[in-house]
Design a binder for these strands. Structure first.
Lengths: 144, 144
DNA sequence: AGATATTAGTTGATTTTGTAACTAACAAGC
DNA sequence: GCTTGTTAGTTACAAAATCAACTAATATCT
């Protein structure tokens, strides 16, 4: 067996992960794209800010492992939608402290609720034990 | 708990899936991108052809759930790299039968070996039972 | 202090993707 | 036979991602 038995693409973990990721992302996009015209990176930046309060762009890059140009553009877009505001730090004027506006917080709350509901819907497909294993496996892979 | 407890992005399944998928894809890209200058869709198309012999573009779209424009471009790219050839079917001149060239088959064999090795490396991170659960969960999610 | 190196963040050019309109070949209805 | 409809695949244009070069502010080294 094995060495020259052509394996199924579905058995190839990177492929399986991609298909699963795409399926769930597509579904959840409807919430933030349809309702707020947001892009995925925007949603992520919004999320980090909503979750952790004030952050600099750099910190968002690190926490989310997102490239700085993506963050830069997402921040600009969110600012234009009046969902966040920037303040240059007086101590070091290279840093910009980002913070959600009242409006941004409301959007965050709304999207969080949707996210939680969607996550629950997904999780409902599995037994408690499967969920534990799945999440453990995913975080271990992501940490590679 | 719950309704307004801000959940961690890492616990959000679509996010966790994306991070894991990106981590593994990035790693495997090096093989086909670095060595053969191929894009992901090209590798997938190559794979389907290597795996199943001759197929039309349509069949590849269906098997891989890839949009036809992506397949069309990947086919053009692979053709230019002399990794596949097309033959118009005389019965119905709308169909083009795609087939790997000798060169294409060699690349397929090589990439399959790499893919299998990489998959094994990933799988090695988990117990047999975890692997089963993981794959089962992923395919169930992808089927949504 | 003044030259050099780093760091935060932005901008621009190129590449890739996604969406929609298009061509060519065939099928069906009348 | 000719209009209408479908199907396979391509192409054109817009949206987005990637990569490299850039600006501005601070830190470091001598």
């Amino acid at each position: 067996m094995s060495d020259n038995s052509p394996f199924d693409l579905r058995d190839f973990l990177p492929y399986a992960l991609n298909q699963a990721a795409e399926a769930t992302s597509r579904a959840f996009q409807q919430y933030y794209k349809g309702k707020y015209g947001m892009l995925r990176t925007e949603w992520r930046v919004l999320f980090h800010l909503g979750r952790h309060g004030s952050l600099t762009a750099k910190e968002i890059c690190e926490r989310g492992s997102i490239h700085k140009t993506k963050v830069s553009r997402a921040v600009a877009a969110l600012e234009q939608k009046r969902l966040l505001s920037r303040k240059t730090l007086p101590d070091d004027r290279r840093h910009e402290i980002l913070q959600l506006t009242k409006n941004g917080s409301a959007v965050f709350t709304d999207l969080c609720a949707s996210a939680r509901a969607y996550d629950a819907e997904l999780a409902g497909q599995f037994t408690a034990e499967e969920q534990v294993v799945l999440r453990r496996c995913l975080s271990r892979i992501a940490a590679l």
